[in-house]
Design a protein around this nucleic acid. Structure first.
Lengths: 359, 359
DNA sequence: CTGTTAGCGCATTCAC
DNA sequence: GTGAATGCGCTAACAG
């Protein structure tokens, strides 16, 4: 059934040279006569040679240093899932000699982010995986990486005016659009909608949140939905203040029937509503973090959108290895699917996503 | 960062035996004294040895024959996706010497299925991947495989009273339940619901369809929904008759506002509704086949449930290899997630699912 | 029963 | 410039 894959040795035989010469041509190492090269290249064209990367990794000797810069995270959070995906790839390519380190910053403090970026620039490394929150600071960072010719890939979201080797993110605009659609489906009345957005120090919102909001508004516009929309601020750095903020909001706005949380903190609103025993407000959130999942199971969140963070990390690291070590061509823009997850599907979903990444 | 993984040679040194002996213990090949075995097993417990499967697969010499029995399929259909997933694993384990063959039957004809099962039993093979439609016939088939000590795994759905090495399927009951929930969300009025089910020759419905129907009914019951439910038959073997069947149905039942298709033929109803220019009926279907996706994009299907067939095939084949070749422990029950896919998410979804399987 | 050894496909190194 | 030899971790065949 299976035709045996062509090996270096086969090509050598077909081209009338030795395996060493084929390797030199394939990897562009020079020291090959024009005649030999042409012979080998001719055969390569004919046979569509794909090297066996598992075999090559065992004989590869070069040490490679990779860094992962991201917001700080604890177990079960969004960025932790990305990290887990990265580790998964590392495990898979166990034969490769590489060192890997993560370095994190406070995503609610743009100055801390800058400091960490500077630290990375002083560290010796061959490539960086970047989880970006702040557009402008990341652009500056990337331009310095460009100068040092250090390749980088993005996870979570792309950053304009940079030249990454690859980017693995979900489509945040479509995510917001979809949240609009779901919200409209689950609200069977004409009450008003609240949008929860985090307040950040020293900078505007995270880029992903802005895009989601645009998508959300676009859906409502396109469908000609005339519900009143309220912006609800919330404090990520001092969460104990949120109850007061929310109390004040609901005192003023008694006719809100649905709330959209554009970041991964949906559980905060869910728990607030539970604590105040408010049951008739539909809640839609992003990210399958542990507290969000708990709220979904309890029924206080109607639906969550999953961004496949584990796959993002897994694929980002894999692409980087393919690019760095095996010199394979890799796809630059990679959009993860958005998973709509409900109470009914969450258990199956979680179990499976531990099993499967996306090869 | 990474601690080097422990090798056979290390274990041999720690246990005071040779590598050959360790290999014999790890793979239960016998010819080892009790004393040696105990020494090795003691070390194995301590160090949590995980063999490097890439290394073992190159040195493995044994030839292995695997069969895939499933309903007939053409490109882009549900069973084709399962097949694609299987091929993907085969590609990944290219170093292993194994032969693979698919053999298919007419899923609308139980007698053909029996004939094919008999044919498989006469073929020499080391393992079978089974895509089952008919419960009883598959049970008989499996019992004969049991007698011959040929291991088998299921894809698509489990079959009771059998002893598979593993099973990879979605939860069809929950799928139906979820379809009930979505249907209820997208229908903003109190009109009636139709359920489309295929008619089969020589046997009751496919097992998965029955389970989905139970789940669907359960949701409506639990929520106390009192919409009238109609069963709409449809002819899978002679599709040209369906227009008449549907015409007759809608002539009698003018107040149907939503239709649930419990098998992968949702596009048939979608295209019928389009051809009759009926626009105010919501349609929910299963499986991301090419024609279903087309109907989803056109807007004639509101939502499709994806069962991750590619992952099913990929994981089934991988588990089988891990079990058969590497003697690794594998998980028996594996439930795939149910993906809710809409017009907005279909493009990203399709692209991604080509990229990623689940490791 | 057990230790030793050849060879899997590849990148690399060392003679020629 | 090039072919031949080496080693990666593992299995399988062989010699004791």
């Amino acid at each position: 059934m299976q035709q045996k894959r062509i090996r270096i040795k086969d090509i050598a035989r077909l081209a009338g040279v030795s395996a060493g010469t084929v390797d030199r041509v394939v990897h562009n190492r020079g020291n090959v006569s024009a005649k030999s090269r042409e012979a080998v290249e001719k055969v390569l064209k004919e046979v569509n040679y794909r090297p066996n990367i598992h075999m090559s990794s065992i004989s590869l000797k070069k040490m490679c240093h990779i860094l992962f810069v991201s917001p700080k995270f604890s177990a079960g959070e969004y960025w932790d899932s990305i990290y887990t995906g990265i580790l998964r790839t590392l495990d898979e390519f166990e034969n490769i000699r590489l060192s890997f380190k993560k370095i994190t910053y406070d995503q609610y403090d743009v100055y801390d982010c800058k400091r960490i970026y500077d630290k990375v620039l002083k560290t010796k490394c061959n490539a960086v995986i970047i989880g970006s929150i702040f557009q402008k600071e990341t652009q500056d960072f990337c331009h310095q990486l460009d100068e040092k010719e250090i390749p980088y890939v993005f996870v979570d979201s792309n950053v304009e005016n940079t030249s990454p080797v690859a980017c693995f993110s979900s489509d945040h605009y479509t995510c917001g659009y979809l949240m609009g659609k779901i919200m409209n489906a689950v609200m069977h009345d004409n009450r008003e909608i609240g949008i929860l957005q985090a307040m950040r120090i020293g900078n505007e919102s995270a880029n992903s949140t802005i895009l989601r909001k645009n998508g959300f508004n676009a859906y409502l516009d396109e469908c000609g939905i005339k519900r009143k929309i309220h912006r609800i601020p919330f404090n990520a750095t001092e969460p104990e203040q949120n109850n007061d903020i929310f109390d004040a909001f609901f005192n003023e706005n008694g006719n809100v029937g649905g709330i959209v949380v554009l970041n991964s903190r949906g559980h905060i609103m869910a728990n607030y509503l539970s604590s105040r025993n408010i049951k008739n407000i539909k809640l839609i959130g992003v990210d399958l973090t542990i507290p969000n999942i708990a709220a979904l199971k309890k029924g206080s969140i109607s639906a969550l959108i999953g961004q496949n963070p584990k796959s993002q990390g897994f694929l980002a690291m894999r692409s980087l290895i393919e690019y760095l070590i095996f010199k394979l061509p890799i796809k630059v823009d990679n959009i993860m699917p958005l998973d709509i997850v409900t109470k009914e599907t969450i258990d199956i979903y979680s179990e499976f996503k531990d099993l499967v990444y996306l090869q």
